[in-house]
């Protein structure tokens, strides 16, 4: 595994926007003084006339995007998840969600892998906030390939979409010929019969790693990548839960309101199944290198393996 390609999904975001600029003349990108960090500067360089820097004023940026959308533009607003979803929640709900405007929210620097900046900037609540808004699509891509596909798919669909990207470089795991991205469709990455591990974002790789370790112990884990938290691929989740009878969810997000909760919502109603939620346990993050934080919070392959073993006891 010496030369696994690693790319941060925020990088993929900027590249995808620049790629799509030619195909979609109505695409407009807005940022709030973070173009270098969110990577929208890549789009800005290619299409300066369709890039708007709003300054450090995320709420106004959100309203501007709403106004642009009423005039037929396809605006992307970009900031760190903490501000794009957190500070902005009510603007997103009332100015974008309620009128169901065609605005896309590109949120970078999500979760604890923000790293050294610490808790104020590590948003572990954005998926929970965004998925409560009626009509909002919520996507958490797992790598470069998925992130780029998600940006294009978001542009191609009508309506508001929240896209969650990370700061830290992550391995490319979806490089295969038959890879296909479809909003609302989960991806079965590994078939198994003893337990289902459902993961999103950077935790998909951890889930795959954990499944390898479990296999060495004779445990046959099924691994599902849920890149679209909303609408959730209920069919895939239910079929796998019914097959294995035990479900583990893994996400770089609070265990309150994110992927784990979305999975529990559907299982509780349609196929009651025991679930172990792995994520950030109702606490704030802290400063440190991204990889060290992932390890400390038990979101790496080893952490997922350990918790799954305990769960299966």
């Amino acid at each position: 595994m010496a030369d696994v390609k690693k790319i941060a999904t925020r990088e993929s975001y900027g590249n995808a926007l620049a790629d799509c600029g030619k195909d979609f003349p109505n695409l407009v990108v807005l940022d709030a003084d973070l173009a270098g960090a969110t990577k929208t500067a890549t789009f800005q360089k290619a299409f300066p006339d369709r890039f708007i820097d709003c300054g450090i004023a995320e709420c106004n940026m959100t309203g501007i995007a709403a106004g642009l959308a009423t005039c037929g533009k396809i605006p992307f607003i970009s900031s760190f998840a903490m501000f794009a979803a957190g500070r902005n929640f009510e603007q997103v709900r009332n100015s974008i969600g309620y009128p169901h405007l065609n605005v896309k929210i590109g949120a970078t620097h999500a979760g604890i892998t923000v790293g050294e900046d610490g808790a104020t900037h590590q948003c572990n609540e954005d998926v929970a906030l965004m998925r409560t808004i009626p009509g909002m699509t919520v996507i958490v891509p797992s790598d470069d390939i998925e992130a780029r596909a998600a940006v294009r798919a978001a542009i191609e669909m009508e309506g508001p979409v929240y896209l969650r990207f990370g700061r830290a470089a992550v391995p490319v795991i979806n490089e295969r010929d038959d890879y296909k991205f479809e909003i609302g469709k989960g991806v079965l990455l590994r078939e198994g019969k003893d337990v289902t591990i459902i993961a999103s974002g950077i935790c998909v790789e951890s889930a795959l790693g954990a499944a390898e370790k479990l296999a060495a112990d004779g445990i046959d884990a099924e691994v599902i990548n849920i890149h679209t938290i909303k609408p959730l691929d209920e069919e895939l989740v239910l079929a796998s839960a019914k097959k294995t009878g035990k479900v583990v969810t893994v996400e770089e997000h609070s265990v309150i309101g994110g992927l784990g909760s979305a999975v529990c919502d559907v299982l509780a109603e349609k196929a009651p199944t025991k679930v172990c939620k792995i994520g950030v346990y109702d606490k704030f993050g802290e400063s440190g290198p991204a990889a060290a934080l992932v390890e400390k919070y038990g979101l790496d392959a080893q952490g997922v393996y350990t918790k799954t073993k305990e769960f299966l006891k």
Binding site: C59, G63, G67, T70, K73, Q91, N94, S95, Y98, P99
Partner: peptide, 30 residues
């Protein structure tokens, strides 16, 4: 805006409508 003919933007949460108006003005310039 989705319910009432002639309403150009949904509003009611104070402070937000002006931003949408700014967005419309930007679109006009673009």
């Amino acid at each position: 805006m989705q319910e009432t003919p002639g309403v150009d933007m949904s509003s009611g949460s104070l402070g937000q409508g002006i931003s949408a108006a700014v967005g419309m003005a930007v679109a006009g310039k673009m």
